[in-house]
Design a protein around this nucleic acid. Sequence first.
DNA 1: CGTATCAATTGACAACTGTCGATGGAACTG
DNA 2: CAGTTCCATCGACAGTTGTCAATTGATACG
Lengths: 120, 120
Amino acid sequence: MSPELTLTPKQKSPNGQPCCEPVVYPDVDRAHAERMATIAKALGDPIRLTLVDVLRKHAGKVCVCELVPLFEVSQSTLSHHLKKLRDAGIVDSERQGLWAYYYVNPEELEELSGWLSWRT
Amino acid sequence: MSPELTLTPKQKSPNGQPCCEPVVYPDVDRAHAERMATIAKALGDPIRLTLVDVLRKHAGKVCVCELVPLFEVSQSTLSHHLKKLRDAGIVDSERQGLWAYYYVNPEELEELSGWLSWRT
DNA sequence: CGTATCAATTGACAACTGTCGATGGAACTG
DNA sequence: CAGTTCCATCGACAGTTGTCAATTGATACG
């Protein structure tokens, strides 16, 4: 399964020398990696990932009061998760009277999505 | 920018009633969400995300001693990050003499990648 | 054998996370 | 105005995270 390109077999380097020079470098720069890691971190909790799933599959805005009963956590915990998603830019919300409606910003997922589905 | 489907405008529910029934449900089940969240969490740090980038773009196995100088953290911190990636199943390693070679398990990224690139 | 090298593990520590119950503020109802 | 409802925020708390320096264990060299 693992790629079987025979790599340059390492030799022990002479005494006092570091073992090797770096021969590989990242393709993503630091800012790029930080933005994507922020998004990934926000998705790194089952509740938040499911929230994004619900909001994304439902084309439109969803009231918080419909989201709360989907999970077995308190209302304040859910509010906290929604805030994390907002802070990461993945979702946004809008107040209408008593209710708060949430929706996904699909563009914010694109960078990570593109990187993740990179092929050869 | 935001989807402008006019949602069923909510009415205040009669006293003592909850505001609404949930009308939306997740498409992902709990186990599915947990697996993907585990992967996302592992990618939720810039160093780990960059490590995966390096390992993935380099078709083959990369020696830890080449990875360490790419980042401004100590060897033990990098080892810790590699362990997290291993624990999540994203990478695997192989010892050869003194050296440890790491490589990506691309299949482990597919589930999250597929979910993330979902369209309408 | 003794020394050097690479990488994993340990222990420590501050920072952050997920959770809850309680509180607060805005907006609607009567 | 007084009472309700929805949702965000606060304070607390145990658990996890990212980091380092120091140690350990395996392997190689002379």
